[in-house]
Design a protein around this nucleic acid. Structure first.
Length: 986
RNA sequence: GGGCUGGUAGCUCAGGUGGUUAGAGCGCACGACUGAUAAUCGUGAGGUCGGAGGUUCGAGUCCUCCUCGGCCCA
């Protein structure tokens, strides 16, 4: 329908030719405004339909593999900015290696087991009034599984929307049956090699619910506790100084709010930062308790209030130093009670001791508190060397009763075992029994009550206790049969791993060097079980036949098989007596799950490889995934499952502080994608220093939107220009210097881009490319070449050379940026090559070494110096309203510097400075000529161009009208018009 | 409190082994163009290099302390 109109108008207006229609002006359907929120989902759909992931694999078949192994996010909610940052970085690395000649396969994964999902299901139960304990374990597990599966689906869609490419149809998950079987298999390897052992540890325990609780499952409520000051008789000082013999018969006094833990006491903690003294009672108000003459040791800060509490007067005898304290041993205050407590109670230095309250000494019952346990374990080796057993007693059973490990209070007590807490959560008779025993032996200094906050179960709201419980551990320091320990191996593996940034190595090394044995046990339901059988002493059943049955069952039915009613008999078979073996019902630490992903993903998938080239996660994962994967792999395979570890920092709000719901400064990736586009978010990741914490907020996003627009417009102009590219090639030797200069720069950038991707330093690449586009292309090369590209005749070699360079520029810039901005670069690529499948199936194009020309670059650096003086002079003219367009000028350039003169010799400086003419002179310039301080030897005298303005090119020349057929255009433009007419294009 | 780590223009980043008036892009202001046009080109104004000491002829760069922030522990 437009054709008839055009024909008509062309015939009518031969005289007043609209020259703009005779120019090679940019033409493109690539819009200036991206409309990414609408366009990106269309491209996601396109990639989905064409099976881009599969096509990438086909294309790369046989190439060297590059594997970035995915650290699994947890499947329990929508993605947040941290996920986006993490996946974008992984995607750019994966894509860049694919486009640089590797088979770079990314298999996303999910972490599915664990506490947070259990909570969600429990929460749903509470809402429905159901009781978790009445639901069969495997029914509960099924609901956890469904919950995780749901979020995997949601996150998959969100990741794809971000432009992440990977095997989303076949991801790995820690809960699929094969994974569960392999995780169990890895655990059995630790069991087989003797690295797995049963130890114990205090855990928070709810007597009411008969279950262990995690820190997040308790809440702190007000509670009234019985408090006691207890005297521990000093029995021995290791020092032989006779002046210190006055300690014999003295007492160390401790204070506690849990008298029932006294039977579990094994040590007294003091602090070397506190000053202590020896005190003597002078008068006693009460007729019970300490007598005058009795000697007691207290922290000086707390002595007075303690004596006041017991209604005593006292004098201070002397200082007691830390070294002296460390040498002391006491008897247990209940020594001999029920026939027990005959062990020595040492004094140990503890970081947790303060002189804010109590006596300055902390009663240490390693089975009843985290700090007590840590202090005890820190000293375990030294104590064993002194002949003191480091074993931790199990003084309380799961119902809150004292056991045989608490002589005189357990089943041996008259009337049966005393109890700490009863089934209703009320205080039992344990405190009373202990206090009476202490009074009976005159070991009570004072007693009282204290209102304070105390942990209660989240569910039942009843108080909880710390209780020693059997747990399964992995040895860090056991000889593994080759003279090395797990710790040795892990430290060696860290030395052999590349860390990006390097500080990660120090950080991980420090953690491995210091860490205690690995506790694998969790008293939970949703996870892979510690699928071993143990006897009463904690020895693990070693029978490959049993193990085989377990693993086969898991492979077929998942780890649920362990929790089926007949599991014990089924797995033990006929060879073992079920009454002699306990089926361990603990769940594996989920870090063991994710620490095993390398086994069931990298090793088991033929399209991957072991070890991985790269693991990439947030820097918090030094304690998490990097750590557990390292231990798991070193324990079973003797080396790390990765060659390189990359870490990123965290995303802060604009003011550098943490994002938080309450401050309302959160940025959601979904919002950025819907308002600006995923490519904007990706560009942010690419321009930021991701090894450190990054900032994200309104102005940061705007900065990236602006940068994006600049790049997009540059690409758009290239596309428009290339609309006229007919593919005629020009030999390198035949190209003008300006074109060769640009090719040289492209060659340099090629090296820089390659190095940048190798170093995972993306900001270096985006910075270089953006600067190149702005400073060298848009402001210089394109600006200069517009005249030739728009106006030159079809046959012009200059025009063809420029077109070819723009073609090279386009192909390289677009592919180099494709890993970073996959949506925009795909759009650009398909605009130029409508029949192409995808830019993501392209390889980076190499730049031939022929393009390198350092001498030319040096020369043109000088040319641009001269040009700067010329444009500076024109700016004065423009400011003073003598010219508007630079094409109105034809200045005289005085060049008295030989080097600069040699550089511009033979070049058309008018073309380069975009003026209509230029006169270059070596004469000394007049005094008032324009100069720049930073460029010596160049001075410019402005002048108006002489001649007539060409109606087509707008240059002012003297040859306008030389062709009578086209009287209003210059000779060059007349030639162009002739050629166009001959080609039938006019 | 401990381990690791950071604080350079409004924003994002450069600033080997200490050496002239601390750089870039964007943004901003002003101007030009009107054939990259909600684009393009040019010019310009923005920094006590978190703070204070110290070493040195000379420190954004080295040392000490302080301060604000981050991750992981306690």
């Amino acid at each position: 329908m437009t054709q008839t109109t055009e024909k008509g108008s062309a015939n009518d207006n031969v005289e007043a030719l609209d020259y703009s229609k005779t120019l090679y002006l940019p033409q493109t359907n690539f819009p200036m405004r991206a409309g990414l929120p609408k366009k990106e989902p269309e491209l996601v759909a396109r990639w989905q339909e064409m099976g881009l992931y599969r096509r990438l694999r086909e294309d790369a078949a046989g190439r060297e593999k590059f594997v970035l192994h995915d650290g699994p996010p947890y499947a329990n909610g929508n993605i947040h900015i941290g996920h986006a940052l993490n996946k974008i970085l992984k995607d750019v690395i994966t894509r860049s290696f694919q486009m640089r000649g590797y088979d770079s396969n990314y298999v996303p994964g999910w972490d599915c087991h664990g506490l947070p999902i259990e909570w969600k299901i429990e929460e749903q139960y509470r809402a429905k009034g159901r009781d978790k304990d009445e639901v069969p374990v495997n029914e509960f597990r099924k609901e956890c599984r469904d919950f995780a599966a749901h979020w995997i689906k949601v996150q998959t869609a969100e990741f794809k929307r971000l432009g992440i490419e990977g095997d989303f149809d076949k991801p790995y998950t820690t809960m699929n049956y094969h994974a569960e079987a392999r995780i169990a298999g890895e655990l059995l390897k630790f069991a087989r090699s003797g690295q797995l052992y049963r130890g114990s540890k205090p855990v928070m325990w709810s007597v009411v619910e008969r279950t262990a609780l995690a820190e997040a499952e308790v809440e702190y409520q007000d509670y009234e506790s019985d408090t006691v000051w207890v005297k521990f008789p000093v029995t021995m000082t290791i020092q032989s100084d006779p002046e210190k013999l006055d300690l014999h018969g003295a007492f160390v006094v401790i204070w506690t709010t849990t008298p029932w833990t006294i039977p579990g006491n094994r040590a007294i903690s003091f602090s070397k930062k506190i000053s202590y003294g020896l005190y003597e009672v002078t008068t006693a108000e009460n007729d019970f308790g300490p007598r005058p003459g009795e000697k007691l040791i207290f922290a000086d800060e707390l002595a007075e209030e303690s004596f006041a509490k017991a209604k005593l007067e006292f004098t201070r005898i002397r200082d007691i130093g830390a070294g002296e304290l460390a040498s002391l041993e006491c008897a247990h205050p209940l020594k001999g009670f029920g026939g027990g407590y005959k062990f020595a109670v040492p004094l140990i230095d503890g970081e947790h001791v303060t002189d804010d309250a109590g006596s300055g000494f902390v009663h240490t019952a390693p089975g009843h508190g985290r700090e007590d346990f840590d202090a005890w374990m820190d000293n375990a080796r030294a104590l064993e060397a002194r002949g003191i057993s480091a074993a931790i007693p199990f003084t309380i059973d799961d119902a809150g009763y004292f056991t045989k490990d608490a002589p005189g209070f357990g089943p041996d007590r008259e009337g049966g075992a005393a109890r700490v807490i009863d089934d209703k959560g009320k205080k039992g008779d344990a405190n009373k029994a202990v206090i009476e025993a202490l009074i009976g032996r005159d070991m009570l200094f004072a007693r009282g009550r204290l209102k304070h906050t105390y942990p209660h179960s989240w569910r039942s709201k009843k108080p909880v206790i710390f209780r020693n419980t059997p747990q399964w551990f992995v040895h860090m320091d056991m000889d593994l049969g080759d003279g090395t320990t797990l710790r040795d191996r892990a430290l060696k593996a860290i030395d052999e791993t590349r860390f990006v940034p390097a500080s990660g190595q120090t950080r991980l090394r420090g953690m491995i060097a210091d860490r205690p044995d690995w506790v694998l046990s969790r008293q939970r339901a949703w996870g892979v079980p510690i699928c071993v059988f143990a006897d009463d002493d904690g020895n693990v059943l070693q029978d490959e036949g049993v193990n085989k049955r377990i693993l086969e069952a898991f492979e077929q039915e998942g780890a649920d098989a362990w929790f089926a009613d007949d599991a014990k008999e089924r797995f033990l078979g006929n060879e073992h007596d079920p009454s002699k073996w306990h089926q361990v019902m603990d769940i594996l630490d989920v870090w063991f799950d994710s620490g095993s992903t390398h086994a069931f993903t990298l090793e088991d998938r033929p399209d991957l490889k072991w070890p991985a080239d790269v693991y990439l996660e947030g820097s918090d994962q030094h304690r998490g995934w990097f750590h557990s994967s390292l231990l798991e792999s070193c324990g079973t395979r003797g080396r790390a499952p990765y060659d390189t570890v990359i870490t990123h920092g965290f995303t802060m709000a604009e003011d550098g502080r943490k994002m938080s719901k309450s401050l309302g400064n959160q940025v959601f990736p979904q919002d950025v994608m819907n308002q600006s586009g995923a490519d904007i978010l990706r560009l942010w990741v690419m321009t930021t220093d991701y090894w450190e914490d990054q900032r994200l907020g309104k102005s940061v996003i705007q900065t990236n939107i602006d940068a994006y627009r600049k790049m997009r417009n540059t690409v758009r102009w290239m596309l428009g220009t290339l609309a006229h590219d007919e593919g005629e090639s020009v030999e390198y030797e035949d190209m003008p210097e300006l074109e060769r200069l640009v090719l040289h720069r492209l060659w340099e950038l090629d090296k820089l881009v390659d190095k940048g991707y190798d170093a995972f330093d993306f900001k270096r690449i985006t910075r270089a490319l953006l600067d190149f586009m702005v400073l060298e292309l848009s402001a210089f090369y394109f600006d200069v070449r517009k005249d030739a590209l728009y106006c030159d005749p079809p046959s012009s070699q200059r025009r063809r050379a420029a077109l070819q360079v723009v073609h090279h520029l386009f192909n390289r810039l677009v592919t180099w940026l494709a890993p970073m901005l996959p949506f925009t670069m795909e759009e650009a690529w398909l605009s130029r090559y409508p029949d192409a499948e995808s830019v993501h199936l392209e390889q980076f194009r190499k730049c031939p070494d022929q393009w390198r020309d350092d001498a030319l670059a040096d020369k043109w650096a000088k040319v641009r110096k001269v040009r700067r003086v010329i444009t500076g002079a024109l700016e004065i003219e423009r400011r003073d309203k003598r010219i508007g367009s630079s094409l109105e000028a034809a200045p005289v350039v005085h060049v008295t510097d030989k080097g600069l003169m040699d550089a511009i010799d033979g070049l058309d400086m008018a073309e380069i400075a975009i003026t209509s003419d230029i006169v270059v002179s070596s004469d000394a310039p007049p005094a008032d000529a324009f100069t720049l301080d930073e460029v010596t030897g160049v001075a410019v005298v402005p002048a108006m161009a002489e001649g007539t303005k060409c109606a087509r090119s707008w240059r002012v020349t003297r040859d306008v009208g030389s062709d009578p057929e086209f009287p209003d255009v210059s000779a060059r433009d007349a030639r162009a018009l002739h050629e166009l007419r001959d080609l039938g294009r006019l």
